[in-house]
Design a protein around this nucleic acid. Structure first.
Lengths: 148, 148
DNA sequence: GTTGGTGCAAATAGTTTGCACAGTT
DNA sequence: AACTGTGCAAACTATTTGCACCAAC
């Protein structure tokens, strides 16, 4: 996701209006590193703007997604989760604690996969999603009774 | 998924019972190449066994998943889809027609990704899921007005 | 003033569960 | 006979929509 200012510009250019709720949502997502669900974003926004509704959060997330400012992750079967980092990167999902995390510096792999799909499979690749499902470092340490 | 006979054996060994409905579900999945949803399986089973209920299909799919005989794909936000091929392979999702397809001979890539996660990210990888989202060959041909 | 946004409440859709009866072992 | 499976209906949960009022432009 671009800076709040740029997103505001983008909204205006598209004929969309800027409200205090939307600014709050933009700002929150800007900082978010935990891949929040719509409900998560809503709960967080409530703290600062107790009058905001879930519907508003939901609709704004939709728009941001459609504008390509955030990406929707669907690995979690129960709820969609959002990532303000739209660059292609691998996600890890811990089966123990449910944490969804980013795996940076995975460009090489992502490019390989993309190439593979385009060249070998004759598929017009728009997006690549890679998920590693397993146990994160934290949970592994706990399992062995070690401190972090 | 293993052969129907082997799955039957596995069920019996686990103290689970074999019914005509379950045999029908096993057989159907054996042949399925279209990554059916629970509803898809149900509709198909109905043709041969009009008395079968959705609940039965649903519960049997759960068991098969838990036994590791089929894998649950969650890319499709609206419904879970099931793949009797539990080997790791890349899936493609066409944004146009919604088709979810397998990409075979992707072992090299899958192994690379797995290695990357384990070695570079210190993440205990249990499963890898890779999705390519874009436009399939069929829809691309149509777009250009070409025959298949 | 026009147009789009907000927020409530209700509709929708897939998933999941409780329970009485039936079938498998 | 004991125990699991089946199938109906209902509960649940996240998502999505209709609509009246409000706010940005």
């Amino acid at each position: 996701m671009q800076s709040v200012d740029k997103v505001v510009e983008k909204f205006k250019k598209s004929g969309l209006k800027i409200t205090s709720q939307r600014i709050a949502i933009f700002s929150l997502l800007q900082e978010a590193r935990n891949h929040p669900s719509a409900e998560d974003v809503y709960q967080e926004i409530l703290k600062a703007y107790p009058t905001t509704s879930f519907t508003t959060v939901y609709k704004t997330l939709q728009i941001l997604r459609d504008l390509g400012e955030i990406q929707e992750l669907t690995l979690d079967k129960t709820r969609a989760r959002y990532d303000p980092d739209v660059s292609e990167h691998i996600h890890t999902l811990c089966e123990h604690c449910g944490a969804l995390a980013d795996l940076h510096w995975s460009d090489f792999i992502m490019n390989n996969v993309r190439f593979y799909g385009s060249e070998k499979a004759n598929f017009e690749v728009h997006r690549v999603q890679i998920y590693l499902i397993g146990i994160c470092r934290k949970c592994r340490m706990k399992k062995w009774g070690l401190q972090e």
